[in-house]
């Protein structure tokens, strides 16, 4: 009896711990007062102010571009990696390869960022490309780590799928390319979408890696927020953070929903 009471209470406390900071952030973003911690009544003026801040709007636009491009590239590359690993199986060292693809998931971001920075610098020294650091290098960096997430998501879908379905198409006269576009792609489509959304939100969230590989004129939203917060938290930042939370929550929910949907056979 006692345990039946204890567990829900702990779970509830856990949820409070997780969500109180976010809820208070959302509430204070509607605060009329300029002082972050003092309640001065309801207002949406910080959101209006946000829309008139060219620095923030510019950073948002950069983040959006980077997010869309890197998520798209990561989806393509990650899907190819997943297909190679599951369908052209039985090569030696397959386990190692799978491990290597997924390693960036657990690699500390500082290390990923640093190693990418070193790579870009030495590449520039050797071939003159990428010239300097900016949007392009952030896109490349985000693509590399998001790709790992896409590969994992798509791979789990492919593993669930009966190989015989693709074999049946090929047996009925479809050449490999046709099999891919007629059968494989539609069947893994939900995982591609959820992989894309995951990559997009990861890119939108990322501060550490972006700080390493960004250059002048390429400040993403998290970089701008971070630099502003160092001068003190303003209600305007609260409003911006609230918007980001909303976008990320929507993205993650759709991704989760699509991943949860089983392959119907």
């Amino acid at each position: 009896m006692k345990r039946g009471f204890f567990l829900p209470v702990v779970a509830f406390a856990g949820f409070l711990f997780l969500y109180i900071p976010i809820v208070s952030l959302v509430i204070f973003s509607f605060n009329k007062s300029k002082l972050v911690t003092v309640w001065g009544g309801w207002s949406t003026k910080w959101y209006v102010e946000l829309l008139n801040d060219p620095q923030i709007l510019g950073a948002a636009w950069i983040s959006l571009k980077i997010g869309v491009v890197s998520a798209t590239l990561a989806t393509i590359l990650g899907t190819i990696a997943a297909i190679v690993l599951t369908r052209f199986g039985r090569v030696r060292g397959r386990g190692l390869l799978i491990g290597m693809v997924t390693a960036p998931l657990v690699m500390p971001e500082v290390i990923t960022g640093l190693s990418l920075l070193l790579l870009f610098i030495s590449m520039e020294a050797m071939f003159g490309w990428p010239a300097g650091r900016g949007i392009l290098t952030i896109i490349i960096a985000h693509t590399t780590f998001s790709m790992a997430y896409v590969a994992v998501v798509v791979q789990s879908r492919l593993v669930d799928m009966d190989d015989a379905i693709e074999e049946a198409a090929s047996d009925l006269g479809a050449k490999p390319m046709r099999v891919f576009f007629d059968i494989t792609l539609p069947m893994i489509a939900p995982s591609l979408i959820s992989g894309w959304l995951l990559s997009f939100t990861l890119s939108l969230d990322d501060l550490v890696i972006a700080s390493f590989v960004s250059g002048p004129g390429a400040s993403t939203l998290p970089i701008v927020i971070f630099s502003k917060v160092r001068l003190g938290v303003t209600p305007e930042i609260n409003a911006l953070a609230t918007l980001i939370v909303v976008v990320v929550a929507i993205g993650i929910s759709i991704a989760w929903f699509l991943m949860r949907k089983k392959v119907k056979t």
């Binding site: 009966d162 015989a164 379905i165 074999e167 049946a168 059968i183 119907k264 056979t265």
Partner: peptide, 8 residues
Amino acid sequence: FQSYALFP
């Protein structure tokens, strides 16, 4: 196919 392998 023994598992039918229909295109779902």
